[in-house]
Design a protein around this nucleic acid. Structure first.
Lengths: 163, 163
DNA sequence: TTTGAAAGTTCGCGCCT
DNA sequence: AGGCGCGAACTTTCAAA
């Protein structure tokens, strides 16, 4: 588990910005041959730094115009792991974070209509181990999943030592 | 602004799962020639259905091990649009949602350490137009940005009619 | 939408530093 | 180790039908 060096960071930044750049282009951007970049990207993938490449779709264009953030409280005997698993089975739940505070999870839900939201919330509330939900409706997404700028990528070791 | 048809939906699903598939492969998956797929994907891009392709990076491996969800309250004279713009200028703020409720925004922040989180929160609180922040620290990310299953993609018109 | 063909890309391998 | 260049196979990206 080696360090991610400076060239890797620039490769990562480029791939976060455009996940479909060719290795040839990437090489031009970072000043390496296509084969060298190919090799490095392969290593970043197998070491788990890059976990995948995904097209991002405007949810409204595919009938998912309603987004909500939902806090999930466990019941007294609620098992955190089991609830997490159940949440993972709900297709409307796009992201799931275990959080500090009196809620066990905050999840992001995407559905087509408020009708559907009502349905989905009912389903979440009825999951084994869940006592309460608290829903915040998203009115508009200003920006989302923005690639963090390059200068914010660092070697984890350096980060921990240096502050 | 035409409808997204069934083949488009399958193309979208494939590209959400693997944003780097070749058009040739895509064509095999959906039963079309590479050029036909190429044409369709180009159309999906220019009509704003597909907004981009991004590599997904494990934040921990690039020194961003701390995530928090932060609610932002406006001060009495706080201008929503201006605050949104300011939030967009903070590189630690990865996503920003305008929400219903007594907070104007909920943002997702990523930093390297809790020290840095303290710093970033101080900065957010001091932004023109912001009165309060309320921070929820993420303990673990169970899953994030999961591609919604295909059966959840639909023609927006059909969705609205059909429920 | 398909075919066809030129230009460009991927990706393994061996050599070089 | 890691980068480079080669080369065969494959992919992209046109135009024509």
């Amino acid at each position: 588990m080696p360090g991610v060096d400076d060239v890797d960071r620039r490769i990562i930044a480029a791939l976060r910005t455009n996940g479909r750049v060719t290795y040839a282009d990437l090489g031009r951007q970072v000043g390496l041959s296509a084969s060298a970049v190919h090799e490095r990207v392969g290593k970043l993938e197998t070491t788990g730094v890059i976990t995948g490449y995904h097209a991002v779709v405007d949810p409204r264009t595919v009938g998912l115009g309603v987004t909500a953030l939902v806090g999930i409280q466990l019941s007294d005997n609620g098992e955190q792991e089991e609830v997490a698993t159940s949440l993972g089975r709900q297709p409307e739940v796009e992201s799931c974070y275990a959080v500090a505070g009196d809620e066990a999870f905050i999840v992001k839900v995407r559905v087509g209509t408020v009708d559907e939201l009502e349905h989905t919330l009912g389903r979440l509330r009825r999951l084994e181990g869940v006592s309460r939900t608290r829903t915040t409706v998203v009115l508009s997404t200003r920006f989302e999943g923005r690639p963090n700028p390059v200068e914010h990528y660092g070697d984890p070791d350096v980060e921990q030592a240096g502050r």
